[in-house]
Design a binder for these strands. Sequence first.
DNA 1: ACAAATTTAGACACTCTTGTCTAAATCGTC
DNA 2: GACGATTTAGACAAGAGTGTCTAAATTTGT
Lengths: 229, 229
Amino acid sequence: MKLHVSPDIFPPRGHEAKRLSIVDSAAAVFCREGFAGANIDLIAAEAGVSRQTIYNHHGDKEKLFVAVVRDLTERCNAGIFATIATFPDQPKDLEADLIGFAVRLNQNCICNRDGKFLRKLIQTEGERYPELFAEWREQGPGRTWPAIAARFARLAYGGYLTIEDPDVAARQFLGLVNAELQTTFMLGGSPREDEVLQSATNGVRTFLRAFGKRRSAASSEKQSALASA
Amino acid sequence: MKLHVSPDIFPPRGHEAKRLSIVDSAAAVFCREGFAGANIDLIAAEAGVSRQTIYNHHGDKEKLFVAVVRDLTERCNAGIFATIATFPDQPKDLEADLIGFAVRLNQNCICNRDGKFLRKLIQTEGERYPELFAEWREQGPGRTWPAIAARFARLAYGGYLTIEDPDVAARQFLGLVNAELQTTFMLGGSPREDEVLQSATNGVRTFLRAFGKRRSAASSEKQSALASA
DNA sequence: ACAAATTTAGACACTCTTGTCTAAATCGTC
DNA sequence: GACGATTTAGACAAGAGTGTCTAAATTTGT
C-alpha cells in the first residue's frame, strides 16, 4: 500500500524519519488548534521529538506551516491522480463503475487523513497565506479538474453519456456524489463507509438520469461500436 | 466573579446597540483569526468600544464566542426560512423559477456576511465545541433541510417533477446548484453574482434533466392527468 | 571504538494576551 | 443642572508561547 521508493537517499535515516514525523504531527495539531492555537511544544511531544529539533529542521513556526501544506498538497495530488487512473473508460456496468469510482475518490482522496487535513487548513488559513494557497489552487484543483473532465469527455465520446460541457459535468458529478456528506464535512467528521456508498449511489443515479443514454423504457443496449477511431 | 443582576432587561438603547456592535466585530475577527488568534483588544477597537465593555457584556472570551455563534445561527436561520418562503410552489416557468430560488438562496443565505461567517466558524471551531454545534445542527440543517425537501415533495405531487426521495433530491439540488462554487467557498471568498447565476443555471438544468417531466426529444406532453389519488 | 553530527533537556529573555481593578469621563433621564 | 449607570483609559498581575542558547547525551558513519 505504501510505496517507499527511496526514503533515505542522502540524508541519514533517522533524520528524514524525524522530519516526516514532525510534519505529520504538525499537520494534526495545526488542524485541531488552528495556526495561532497550535503549540510547538505539543507538536514536539506528539512527534516524539524535542522542541529544538523542530527549530533545527524548519526554523520557524510559519515555515513549518508552509512545509505542512506543501507536503499535504503533494501527497493528496498523488492520491487523486492515482484514483483518476482508475476511472472507468470502458465501463461494463456504467452505474456500478461510476459508483465505484466515486467511492474510491472519497475514501482515498477526500475522507482520508491527508485530504481531511488539507481541506481544513485551506478553509481555516487560506485567507492568511494567499500566495501559498494560490499555489495549491494551481497544483490541485487547477490540474485535477481538467483531468477528471477529460475522462468524462471520453465517456461521452465513447457514447456512454450525453454531455455538453465536460467541465461542468465533472463538477456536478462531484457535487452530486457528495451531496449527502456536506454537513459531515463541515464539522470535520469522516462519514461512515455506508454513508459514502449511499451518497455515491444516489448521486450517480441522478447523474445518469441527467446524462446517461436513456435506458429508461427498455434496451440494455450493448452499444458496441466504441472502438471507433 | 460578579453576578449580573438582570443583564438584559432594562438596559437602555445604546446599551444593546453596543452589544450588537461587539458581537458583529467579534464575528469578523473570530473568522479572520480563529478563536485562539482572535484578540480582544482588536475586537474592541473594531467595535469602537473599550475592552472593559466587552468584559462587562460577555464576561469571557469563550462566552463571547458562544454568543457570536448563537446570534449568527439565529439570523441565518431567519434568512433561510424567509427564502424558503419564496420557493416556487406553482411555477410558471419551472427552470427560471428554480434558478431564481437557487440564486436567492445563495445570495441571501450562503454568500452573505452572516452565512460566510457562520460557515467558517463551524468549519474551524466545530470540533472544539461539540455541544454548541450539535445545537446548530439541530436548529439549522435539522430544520431547514426538511423544509426544503417538503417544497420539492409538493412540486412532485403537483406533477412538476418525478422524485422518489424528496430529501435526497433537496440535497442534490443544492449540491448541483453550488457545484461550481466549491473552490471559492473553500478559500472563504464570495463568488461574483454572475458566477452564482451561472452555477445555478447549470445546476438547475441538470436537475431538471434528471427529475423534470421529460420534454427532451419529442413529446412536450401536457401530461395533465396528475390530480389522481 | 572513535569522531562528527544530531538530538535532547532545561533555562532563559522577550513578547503577547487575558482578565481584573480603579478612577475619571460620559451618557441618559428626570 | 444633577444623579445614577455605563463606559473609558490605563495600569496591573499572571500565564502562556516563541525562539535562542548551552552543555550533555545519543546516534551515525568509519
